[in-house]
Nucleic acid binder design. Sequence first.
RNA 1: GGCGCGGUACCCAAGUGGUAAGGGAGAGGUCUGCAAAACCUUUAUGCGUCGGUUCGAUUCCGACCCGCGCCUCCA
Length: 488
Amino acid sequence: MSLHLYNTLSGKVEEFSPATDNTVRMYACGPTVYDYGHIGNFRTFVAVDILRRFLRQSGFGLNHVMNITDVDDKIIRNAAQQEKSVDEYTKQYEEAFLEDMQTLNLERPEKMVRATEHIEEMARFIQKLEEKGFAYKTEDGSYYFSIAKFPEYGKLSKKDFGGMEVGARVDVDEYEKDNARDFALWKAPKEGEAFWESPIGPGRPGWHIECSAMSIKYLGESFDLHAGGEDLTFPHHENEIAQSEALTGKQFVHLWFHVRFLLVEGKKMSKSEGNFFTLRDLLLKGHKPSAIRYLLASVPYTRQLNFTFAGLEQAAHSVQRLRDFKSRLSMANLPAGKNQVVQDLAAHTQLQMRSSLDDDLNTAQALAAVFDMVREMNTLADRGELRQDDKAPLLATLEKFDEIFAVLGDDDTEKMTRAMEWAKAHGKAGESSLTATISDEDAERLVTERNNAKKARDFARSDAIRKQLADAGIVVEDTKDGTRWKRK
RNA sequence: GGCGCGGUACCCAAGUGGUAAGGGAGAGGUCUGCAAAACCUUUAUGCGUCGGUUCGAUUCCGACCCGCGCCUCCA
């Protein structure tokens, strides 16, 4: 089987492949940088990250563009309240977002672009739409898109606007629009608010136009895939289609990829419910980035995911099981030779992972394949039936797995420490529940010391050191291949 | 109201017209100086409820109940 993905436009799971050459041209709606990213945002970004990682593993090239929305009503309002420029205000959150991406092992898209750096392109876009008769200007200098001129309006969100009245001007929001459903392309400046000069006059862009203008600029008039959270289907993406196809007369995007919202503790996340968490909140509560990523990745993107703290604990254990297996394998001292059963199983597991992900990124099933392998190989290892040459294919399978899931490399402590430092610098250290820890070097030194005590059969000393390490969050495990330690 | 998605064990969660993956947790056991890890056994005659189709349905159809999303820029 080859890669199949659900396409919101057709409402079906379709075979996916890039149209022009072997490179996938994809655009993903990025963050609006008015605050720190929350766990819901990151479910979407993790899903897109898994998509791009799997596309690459499937042999495609990538040209992935992500926008940073650094101008919108909320930004302008908040910046004004804090007496900051729009730039100054958005910069801090953009930086935080990039850091959060690293925390979750989200790969950098090939290109990240800011809305405010493409005002010119947007203005020209609107100008052309006006020339073609799809856009009109109102008395105050704002521009709107006339959905009556675009009969296919509603095709993505499956909405029927056929019965809408056209012509009679409706007064909405102080602006004069031909049709209540017409959406803003360009907003005339309001008293005291930030605005930009442009070929179509002063003002600021509507929300939707940035994605059309930037995606077409960097990916062409027709490209392969466009991704975002499910809420963007309407109106955002519907409007992008209308603007873009009105301008070019070509199909804008072939496949629309939408990520389902998550629930937090069984309810829609909202500040009033008290179940609203930024990524940073979770780190400061002591949750590992790898556990967060694992939990977000473990439920297929088309399914609603219930994000709970119990689930987060479970995810941490699951990740640990995989890491334990990997380190057991890596340090094992095995007899020469190979076991054909192992070779076959490794190959089979890779096939299973691949076909699961080919099936609309069924991550839950891919995980099951890996855990099956882990259990069977642990059994063989316990029985002493593993051979030296079995290591490579098993480790290679784990590597394939981690090319997608990216949870095996242990840099959690480092990232959590960074979060704690950030919190201190922002006067939020009080919220932290991170326990004090020690450096790798100190841990190594104590482990060696304990081993010496153990060899001398000084178990009291050895247990005292174990306790000392445990207090620093370090677990020591004795195996027949030597002692290993890990951070809890 | 319109459109759409889902309800599977203690929790999370796959899946199939032929009798329930995987992870976590619990219980018992093996191993172990201790402790972990690992392994073994065990935990849904049952897949929201009620009907229908079928030799057979959790899987298809219908009704109902519940949860969720979009329908005024929330991922």
